[in-house]
Amino acid sequence: MNNKLSISYLLLFITPLIFSCREAVKDENENNVSASVLSLHVGDEKYLMINTEESVVTWKGSNLNGINTQTGYVYISKGELMIENRQLMGGAVEVDMNTIEDKNHGSDNKLVNHLKDADFFNVKKFPFSAISITRVTPVNGGNKKVTANLTIKGITHSVTFPIKIEVMDGTVKANAKLVIDRTKWDVRYKSAKFYDNLANQTMSDSIEFHIKIIAKNRIN
């Protein structure tokens, strides 16, 4: 695979993307607005296309006690960031769920096939996930707090997460960490919320995504 980098979903979604966190994470809001990739329009802002060869989402998941963890990758299919006065103002990312990989065994193995089936992400029916930024709040320096609409399995909720942005001439580097409660997106497999008597087979409801994005090339 290209650029198997450990990052700090988004993207996109992408994390990321079944993780070692032991507690379900609360989303600040819920919003059923579609999070498909934005069609960005005219103005004085710069719209930078995400370089899909250099960008990646790393996912991590675990059972409830955090002992058995799994890590892998999923890839961004397209996306754009909006930059104004060297500041992140918005953007959108689409993640191809068919590109899910396991860090140790690649894309063709029992684990990945299970992640693609209806127990998890039902990739045949929902081949893409997406995230669209709705608000960016400065924290300090290049550190921001992003609020965005995250869509997985056709379900959209609002999420808020930290992101670090580095803006250079013609290039933006972004690193983010996003942790979600998977059950809000109907990923219920071996969740203690929905299944009794799982004992040590119970999986954490938290999924963590580490998102690395490189965006380049002004769009006219």
Rank of each mutant, 00 (worst) to 15 (best):
I165D: 09
F120H: 06
R135Y: 06
K193D: 10
N140K: 14
V33A: 11
D169W: 02
L81P: 07
H157R: 08
H157E: 05
N85L: 01
T171E: 14
K144T: 15
K144L: 15
T137D: 11
K46R: 12
S6F: 12
N85G: 01
G61L: 02
N98E: 06
K110T: 13
N104T: 09
F13K: 11
E28M: 14
M89D: 07
G72Q: 04
E208R: 11
A176W: 00
G106T: 00
R135A: 11
N98T: 07
T202C: 03
M89Y: 10
D196F: 07
Q70K: 15
E28H: 15
F128G: 03
F121H: 03
T151Q: 04
S107F: 09
H210W: 11
V139M: 09
L11N: 08
N63V: 07
K116D: 00
I214Q: 02
I131H: 04
G66K: 01
E45L: 06
N2Y: 14
G141I: 06
N65K: 09
A215G: 07
H210M: 12
V146T: 06
A118E: 15
I165H: 06
E28F: 15
L150F: 14
W185V: 01
Y75G: 00
V25F: 09
S39I: 13
L150A: 11
L10I: 12
L5M: 07
G91M: 05
E45P: 03
T160E: 15
I133T: 05
H210N: 14
V187H: 02
S129L: 00
S20Q: 06
G43C: 02
I131A: 10
I50D: 01
E166K: 15
T202Y: 01
N140V: 13
D119N: 08
I83P: 01
A199I: 06
D96L: 00
D205I: 01
N31P: 04
L88A: 07
N200K: 11
K184N: 06
K46T: 10
I100P: 04
N200R: 08
V167T: 12
M97A: 08
N98M: 02
G90M: 03
G43Q: 05
L81H: 11
A215L: 06
F161A: 05
K177L: 13
D205C: 02
E80K: 13
N85F: 01
Q87W: 00
L115D: 02
T69P: 00
G90L: 04
I155P: 04
D108L: 03
E80T: 13
V112Q: 08
M49T: 14
K4F: 09
M82F: 02
D181V: 00
I67M: 12
V136G: 08
S34G: 02
H210K: 13
L178W: 08
S39R: 12
A24F: 05
A24M: 08
D108I: 03
I131E: 08
V187T: 03
N31R: 07
N109V: 00
M168L: 14
N3E: 10
N200F: 14
N29H: 08
N122F: 15
K4E: 15
I14N: 08
H210L: 15
N65G: 03
S62T: 05
I50N: 01
A176F: 01
T52E: 04
K216P: 04
E23V: 15
N51I: 05
V136S: 07
A148C: 08
T147K: 07
K145S: 12
L5E: 09
V42A: 12
